[in-house]
Amino acid sequence: MNIFRLAGDMTHLISVLVLLLKIYATKSCSGISLKTQELYAMVFLARYLDLFSDFISLYNTVMKLVFIGSSLAIVWCMRYHRVVRRSYDRELDTFRYWILVGACFTLALVLHEKFSFQEVFWAFSIYLEAVAILPQLVLLQRSGNVDNLTGQYVFFLGAYRAFYILNWIYRYLTEPRFTRWISCVSGLVQTALYADFFYYYFISWKNNAKLQLPA
C-alpha cells in the first residue's frame, strides 16, 4: 500500500459517501444516472469474485464489501425506493449500455492476464469501469445545470482513478516486476473521459458559478 493508492481509495470512498448523502439528504436522485450505478455494481461484482477466496487484508475485504454493498444499495434505492425513484430522470437516462457491456466482455475474452473465469471477469471489470461513467456524463449534459453534490460525486469518482495512475507509476518505479498494463491503460482511458468534465468543473469553481456542461 502506498500513499497514492490510499488517497485513491479514500477519494473513491468519499465519492460513494457524497452520492449516498445526496440521495438520503435530498431524498432525490435527479441528475444521477441509474445506468452508471448499475454498471458500477457489475464492475464490483465482477472484480471482487475473489472476495471469499483470497484474503489480502482486513482493509481490502472491508472496502470490497463497502463498494459492493453501496453500489447495490444505490441501484435498489433508485429503482424501488418509493420517494427516491420518482425523481429519477428516466427519459434522459437512455444510454444503451449493453453495447458497452458486450464490448468489454468480448475484449476481456481476448485480452486478459490469464484465461481463467476469475481473470476474465477481472479484466472485464477493469474495461467496464473505464466506460461506466459515460451514461452519467451524457445525463449531465442533457440535464443542463448540475447540483453541487452530483458535481462533487462525479469529480471524486474521476479523481480516484487519477490517484491510482500515480500509484501505478510509483509501483512501477519501486517494485521490480510490477506490470499491470490492463489496469494502467484502462485507468488512463477512464481518467481521460473525465477531462472535459474536470475542465468545466474547474471553470465553475474558479468563477464560483453553477456547473454547466455544454449540451
Binding site: 481490502n60 472496502m63 463498494f67 489496469s183
Partner: peptide, 10 residues
C-alpha cells in the same frame, strides 16, 4: 510455493 497472481488493488 506457486504465488498465484492475486490482485491486491481494489
Amino acid at each position: 510455493l506457486k504465488v498465484r497472481n492475486v490482485h491486491d488493488e481494489l
